[in-house]
Write a protein that binds this DNA or RNA. Structure first.
Length: 270
DNA sequence: CTCCAGGGTTTGC
DNA sequence: GCAAACCATGGA
């Protein structure tokens, strides 16, 4: 099937933007996985793409996933004159904030703490390969992200072999709480931002940064702008220690992602 | 060898 | 309340 996406949409930048850890380029197509859904998407023209899914799946799963109902172009054009942020947004044109599965995002960002992005990708891929159920696509067999039920029963040794290190108890606690229906992540969609933040932070191993990432990348809370080591460097060195992101209000998370992507590709500047 | 990676919890004051 | 210590692991 062919779809048309007239707004900002750059598969390479989305893949490299550090929100999703299992996206992979296969020839000139990109593969994304969420839950048990897999899509292969390949550019055809400037605004047209081949997609491997049905129209129904595109509309129900992938339009929300890629946040395609939001106008990123006008968001970029609406940035106040600001040397760094304008430059970062221009450089990051094409990035979108993915709306990912809450469980997968929660575990992925718990694992992410004090790891490099390549190390995060390796750990999550190892976790999926060793614990995730097989998904058959028309091109290949791949592993889904492990369910909470599966991870709650995983052994420490099997988790350690995925490189989870000291984060193993964090993952097991979260898996047990969610598999036991003590935490209904779906229901948290109804919470306002402060309530959602505090609920996420009740999870062992989840602090401000991981909670902010889950809010932005799974719950679509665009006001959430996670401050990690790189964003912290930007705040110190480009903004004299004053965090500029809250002033962007409901675009703060998008600006944060432009800034994060920019600095990942200009590390010598910081 | 040391330092760092999309940090958080525990401990000590 | 805040700062320091500690936490596994791999790469530079």
């Amino acid at each position: 099937m062919i779809v048309t996406i007239p707004d900002d949409f750059d598969l390479q930048k989305i893949s490299d933007s550090g929100q999703c850890f299992r996206c992979r380029q296969i020839h000139d197509a990109y593969r994304f996985i969420t839950g048990r859904n897999v899509i292969y998407i390949k550019p055809k023209t400037a605004v047209q793409y081949h997609v491997s899914c049905t129209l129904k799946e595109w509309e129900e799963i992938w339009i929300p996933y890629f946040d395609l109902t939001r106008d990123y172009q006008s968001t970029r054009n609406g940035i106040d004159p600001d040397g760094f942020m304008e430059k970062a947004a221009d450089f990051g044109k094409g990035i979108r904030i993915l709306r990912q599965d809450a469980w997968e995002t929660l575990i992925s960002f718990i694992i992410s703490q004090r790891k490099s992005i390549p190390a995060i990708k390796r750990a999550i891929e190892a976790l999926a390969e060793s614990h995730g159920e097989i998904i058959h696509t028309e091109y290949e067999d791949i592993h889904a992200f492990p369910t909470a039920s599966i991870l709650s029963q995983a052994t420490d040794a099997s988790l350690a072999s995925c490189g989870l290190g000291y984060r193993i108890p964090y993952v097991k606690h979260a898996a047990a709480a969610i598999a036991g229906n003590h935490m209904l992540l779906k229901d948290w969609d109804a919470l306002d931002d402060p309530s959602l933040l505090s609920m996420l932070k009740t999870i062992h191993g989840v602090g401000d940064k991981v909670a902010s990432c889950v809010m932005l990348f799974a719950y679509g809370r665009m006001s959430s702008a996670p401050v990690d080591t790189w964003i912290s460097k930007i705040i110190e060195e480009k903004y004299a220690g004053r965090n500029p992101f809250p002033s962007y209000q409901d675009h703060a998370g998008i600006m944060q992602q432009y800034a994060f992507y920019y600095i990942q590709n200009h590390k010598t500047e910081v």
